[in-house]
Amino acid sequence: MLEKETGTVEGFVWIGIGFIICILALQFDLGTFHQPGPGFVALLTGLFIAAMGLAMIVARAMSKRRPDKASGGDHPFQIEAWRRLVYTMVLLLAYVILIEPVGFILTTFLLMFGLFFDYRKRNYLWSLFFSIATALVSYLVFEVWLRCQLPRGLFPWW
């Protein structure tokens, strides 16, 4: 839908992404209509995304209303509780990086402690208990019972 709230900037971003996909597609054989190659559908997809980006810009230009609060959509950049959000994202990234070298049990315990911990309530004991319990129970269920082969890291005998 050529909605009025679609902005010009996002249109240009999608045109850019569309063209990047086209360039990537051109590195493969496009083939012909008789015998389409591996890059054929990718090229069409890139052109499609770029066309949608262009449509967003045209829609924005034709629209009389400004893409502001009146549109009734989300307020994307008013991120509430951003500290907890960034904190959680950093913890998750650290978990992904450390799980293989350090192992499932210890990394899970650290992640759970970090996520359960509430800096305002200073609930150290509560967080400690639940993070140990979660790490052990999940290990028993997924590794021992369901045989998921979780990373062992520093503890190869586990």
Binding site: T6, W14, I17, A42, F48, I49
Partner: peptide, 30 residues
């Protein structure tokens, strides 16, 4: 929400699905 945004999402999903081996030639893509 916007149909244009939905279409862009569909295009992006389609591109992501193309990552990996080509279904006919087996060539690795993207």
């Amino acid at each position: 929400g916007s149909v244009l945004r939905g279409l862009v999402m569909a295009g992006l999903g389609l591109f992501l699905s193309l990552i990996g081996q080509d279904i006919i030639t087996g060539q690795a893509r993207f």
